[in-house]
Simulated assay, not measured.
Amino acid sequence: MSTEATTGQTEFIVSGKDTWGAFTLWDVCPAPTDPTRRAIVLEEAGVEAFDAFGELFTPSGATAQEALHEILRELRERAGLDHYAMRGGRDLGPTLTSELYGGAGVAAATKDAAFGVAASALPGVPSFHVRGLPDRCAASTRDRVRAGVINSGRRWPMASVWAEVTPLEPDGKGVSVAGASALDLALACSVLVAAGQIPCGCWPDVALIGELGLDGAVRTPKGLAEAAQGAAAQGARAVLVPADAVDDVDLAGVRVIGVASLHEALELLSDERHPLRPTAADAHNPGSGLPARG
């Protein structure tokens, strides 16, 4: 799992109000890459900003913070001022050098294929968007993930949260309706890391597979064995699966670790317990001889 910023330039849609000497941030989100969708979002956001006596900007940057600094530079030039503050949920003043909001990525799999799940927490109106899922199951996935996080004793980030699911293979299959729930655990963990609520333990070779119950329990998704095999084929050295289904997954040379709840999975990813450290209680195949990372 990693919180490194994505390289390259991304266009952001930013709304807020210029109060002469300060800019009050209302919302910021990545602009859709599809031209038609981008035009629709810009029109809707523009109307809302105009009705509230605000403005809409479309800066570009490697991160949301870079894009916001570009707006501050433009406002300083427009006003002829040396300093311009930014207000919102946090003070993101023009001299800020550290990222208050971040991103995270983790490996996952469904019965269809192996996937990467990436999440970003951006300043703005609290919301949760997931790309890469079938329309029929996107809403139910968001509900399970959000409820699972809250009912596990964690605070849902007061931010604009974006998650994206992409195949790990260039021509890999997309997510099917029947397999989508297997991504719940990966989505929840990546969101919490992006929001800074758990440490960013970097385990690119650990895959997370599991459906979340509304109470935060990790349940067995359809095609668990196929999902675990797909993750192993993509280089996973360990997979986190529902505790009740550990005996159903048998992978040569790969540790299979059972977790009963999102809380338990977060303990592992928070380094309170290490997912690659052999333990008789967690490992289905403790004789794999995999070294601990540390």
Rank of each mutant, 00 (worst) to 15 (best):
T3G: 01
A5R: 08
E11S: 14
F12H: 10
I13T: 12
V14T: 04
K17V: 03
G21Y: 01
T24V: 07
C29H: 02
P30H: 01
P30F: 10
P30S: 12
A31M: 02
P35T: 05
T36K: 14
V41D: 07
V41P: 10
L42P: 04
E44S: 06
A45D: 06
V47T: 04
E48L: 03
A49I: 07
F50W: 06
D51F: 04
G54T: 07
T58I: 00
L68E: 06
H69W: 08
H69Q: 14
H69K: 12
E70R: 12
R73L: 12
R78P: 09
L81I: 12
H83F: 04
R87I: 05
G89A: 00
S98P: 02
S98N: 03
S98Y: 01
L100Y: 01
L100N: 00
Y101N: 01
G102R: 01
G103D: 03
G105P: 11
A107I: 04
D112S: 15
F115S: 09
F115Q: 11
G116S: 05
V117H: 08
A119Q: 14
A119L: 08
A121E: 09
G124Q: 05
V130A: 00
R131S: 15
L133A: 10
C137Q: 11
S140M: 13
T141Y: 01
T141M: 02
R144M: 02
R144N: 10
I150K: 14
S152C: 03
G153T: 04
R155F: 04
W156H: 03
W156N: 00
W162A: 06
A163E: 06
A163D: 06
E164Q: 09
P167Q: 00
L168C: 05
G172K: 07
V177T: 13
A178V: 02
S181W: 09
L183H: 11
A186S: 02
V191A: 06
V193T: 15
W203H: 10
P204N: 13
D205P: 01
V206Y: 11
L208G: 06
L212I: 04
G213V: 07
G216K: 10
R219L: 13
L224K: 09
L224D: 13
A225N: 15
A225C: 14
E226R: 15
E226A: 15
A227W: 13
A227G: 13
A227R: 10
A228Q: 07
A232C: 09
A233R: 13
A233G: 14
Q234M: 13
A236W: 00
R237P: 02
R237E: 05
A238F: 09
L240Y: 15
V241K: 08
D244S: 15
A245T: 11
G253R: 13
G253L: 02
R255V: 05
R255N: 04
I257Q: 06
I257Y: 03
S261L: 01
L262T: 05
H263S: 15
E264Y: 05
E264H: 02
E264D: 05
A265K: 09
A265F: 03
L269C: 10
S270K: 05
S270N: 07
R273L: 10
H274G: 08
L276H: 10
A280S: 15
A281Q: 14
A281D: 14
A283M: 14
H284K: 11
G289P: 15
A292W: 14
G294K: 14
